[in-house]
Design a protein around this nucleic acid. Structure first.
Lengths: 206, 206
DNA sequence: CCTCCCACCGAACGCTCGTTCGGTTGGCGG
DNA sequence: CCGCCAACCGAACGAGCGTTCGGTGGGAGG
């Protein structure tokens, strides 16, 4: 077994167990067992339970932000950038359901400088969404209103991503168009606009 | 102290402590202290921790549903009924923030018939939202699509209600119009439509 | 005045938790 | 072949948990 592989396994196990049970209910013993180590063996690799939560959050947020940046880099128009935000979030929610659950639910349980660091990364993610809405906004909304909008959008996305709506990556992709149309054009206009939004997106370069 | 008053105080204390700490982190000792009883004294009134969670959820959901029904009863058009759903939810979120937090976060921790009972009440609430969207839908969407829509709407609402967006009941009322317009007409059209939606609502009878 | 019972409490039980400590390997540099 | 160190493990510690048990006091009923 390559060095570091154990470490990866531990973080994976921690992510799964914490997502399933919630941080406080997830016991270090169960994480150790799930990673294939003894209780004391786990403490050879990590300093404590809080550090475990931090490590999981830190890595997951880095991945999420990296995926979003990749998606935004290839998106030309504001509409397609919005679609990129939505699609990336839902896709991440499908592939890394456990990680997203922890990001949304358990990050507040951190404290001290670790909490600040994670909070900053969450903020960094939010800011990207804010920028997309800003360039899309035809009404010169204030920063506060745009922030509300971002929170509303993310609320919608997490509402989907946290529940068992997504059964395949295809689901995630289709649903992204529908959610994008709903957010952009509203419930009354969403259905007819969903297809045209998706078509516009397919015209972009790979 | 009137009989039953103690009981009310216990439920209030349980709701506050559970909302603040989360169910598993909320200790029976702290709830008892917060209600002004000893640990053993609390057990004179309730059978155990799970029952406490159930009682809080049951009462809170009854109140939420009752408030929604009252609001829907006075709303004539589908648009105003949607606004009633949104406003009631946000208003409840402002006045009973602790209760709403528990409804959204902790209900899954129940098990057995208690869980089923609470699940049914949650479903009953969701169904009311579904009906409003159905009569509003111009595209004959399928039941599944409408259910998704309801979940998206509730995701948005809870995204607001669980975070410190609401500072007053006026905030809740204003925000309800904006969210209603955003959901109905979309991000691009929401701002100009928000005022007209609110005006339409003010024309209805008290 | 005696009795009973409701409301309530102090103390303990058994359990699980996060964490620590004192080993014991097995492979590798010298 | 020796010594060392990284990589583990079994066992225990103290704290906190939900729950229970054996009371106690005081007001109402007889």
């Amino acid at each position: 077994m390559a060095i570091g592989e154990r470490y990866e396994g531990i973080l994976k196990a921690a992510c799964d167990v914490i997502a399933r049970r919630g941080f406080h209910q997830a016991s270090i013993r169960e994480i150790a067992r799930s990673a294939g180590l003894s209780l004391a063996g786990l403490y050879h690799y990590v300093g404590g339970k809080d550090e475990l939560l931090f490590l999981v959050l830190d890595r997951s947020l880095d991945r999420l932000i990296e995926e979003l940046d990749d998606a935004l880099a290839g998106a030309r128009t504001p509409e397609i950038r919005l679609l990129a935000v939505i699609r990336t979030h839902l896709d991440f929610g499908f592939r890394q359901a456990a990680a997203l659950k922890i990001i949304n639910r358990d990050w507040e349980l951190l404290s001290g400088p670790r909490r600040d660091e994670i909070s900053a990364k969450r903020q960094s993610y939010l800011t990207r969404g804010l920028a997309v809405l800003r360039e899309l906004d035809p009404h010169d909304r204030s920063g506060d209103e745009l922030l509300s909008g971002t929170n509303l959008l993310l609320g919608m996305l997490n509402g989907i991503a946290t529940r068992p709506f997504l059964r395949s990556r295809e689901d995630a992709r289709t649903l992204a168009s529908e959610v994008g149309a709903l957010f952009l054009y509203g419930f009354l206009e969403a259905a007819p606009r969903s297809a045209e939004l998706q078509a516009a997106d397919n015209r972009r370069p790979a």
